[in-house]
Design a protein around this nucleic acid. Structure first.
Lengths: 184, 184
DNA sequence: TCCTTCATGTAACTAGTTACATGATTAT
DNA sequence: ATAATCATGTAACTAGTTACATGAAGGA
């Protein structure tokens, strides 16, 4: 069976602690969300595939009459995860930024639009950084001892988005009406 | 007809100068590639759709007996593009980074792997920045006057990837064997 | 001659999102 | 009571990649 990166996200979470599909979604929404988001539409079918492949096993653990499936990683699953992590060959970092695309083509719309785009982008990154900061406070009290790198990666995110917010803010400041625009 | 961001990339290029599908691919591989990559599998069908919708029009311009379709943006296409660019409401910046995912889960594999990942990532961003730098030199001599923002966006890319390369390099330096690892 | 670039296109596939359906439990 | 949260899942859809097929033009 060939595993996708999304499969490894799931295995990675389960290597830390057993969890339900719902738990995995909650966890990734806070932790890996800013560099690898996943949705229920991927999680539930993938958990089934991983179970069939013997990389995780499932255990029923209902709360009253509400169903609940708890998944645990198996030894084979752990081996697959370690093998994947240990392959340190370069892989690309993909970015898809609709607003940067608009900014790129913004000469056609004038400096007002250009400045507005830059300001919105700055605010957007400030917000992302603030969201990560909250999660960071929370992580500090929790299992930072067992998974110290979680905190490091969160730190990259905070620093990166703070840097970007700053870049766009300074950029917006530098945008002035063109000579043609002033003439009108 | 509902246009995707990819449609607007094509319109954006055509707003600068008429081009063939091949030209568009060459151009985007150098300009928008690092924040919005597109492939032939999207370009050719999309050019057909845009033509049918009247946003671009096509003109045959063969070189000898080699076929060549040159596309031009129409007034309606220009209006659609400007409308899209002028909508400055926030949209997310999506990042998908397989290596950062590995780094996130690297506690399971030990500090050697962690350091190797960080070093590879640093090198990766150095390379991206260098590639953009080359394109930057080229752009400076060309139509920077008509589309000054192209240079600005390229600058963000260079600064960003340089910053990331530096971050990961410093991070790799900070990785040391854990006390457990030293004990073995 | 032969390799590279120019040039167009499609089919099959992989990945991922969105919207929906369903229903129990818990906190206000 | 009722709203929020917990919990599982699928179907339809959108987006995007990869691999392939085809062939002309230009330069070494």
């Amino acid at each position: 069976m060939n595993l996708s990166n999304t499969s490894y996200v799931i295995l990675g979470i389960l290597a830390e602690h057993p969890a339900s599909g719902y738990d995995i979604k909650q966890h990734t929404d806070k932790s890996t969300r800013h560099f690898w988001a996943i949705s229920y539409g991927q999680i539930y079918p993938e958990l089934k595939r991983l179970t069939d492949a013997g990389l995780v096993r499932v255990e029923e653990s209902p709360t009253g009459s509400r169903q609940r499936h708890i998944y645990r990683i198996t030894d084979e699953g752990t081996r697959a995860l370690v093998r994947w992590v240990s392959d340190t060959r370069p892989a690309p970092c993909e970015i898809r930024d609709e607003m940067l695309l608009k900014l790129f083509f913004s000469d056609i719309a004038g400096s007002e639009v250009k400045r507005a785009l830059a300001n919105t982008m700055s605010a957007r990154h400030t917000e992302v950084a603030a969201g990560l900061q909250v999660w960071d406070e929370h992580v500090k009290e929790a299992h930072l001892d067992r998974f110290p790198t979680h905190g490091d990666v969160l730190r990259i995110g905070i620093d990166l988005h703070t840097w970007l917010a700053d870049w766009y803010a300074r950029y917006a400041e530098s945008v002035h009406p063109t000579t043609e625009e002033e003439a009108t």
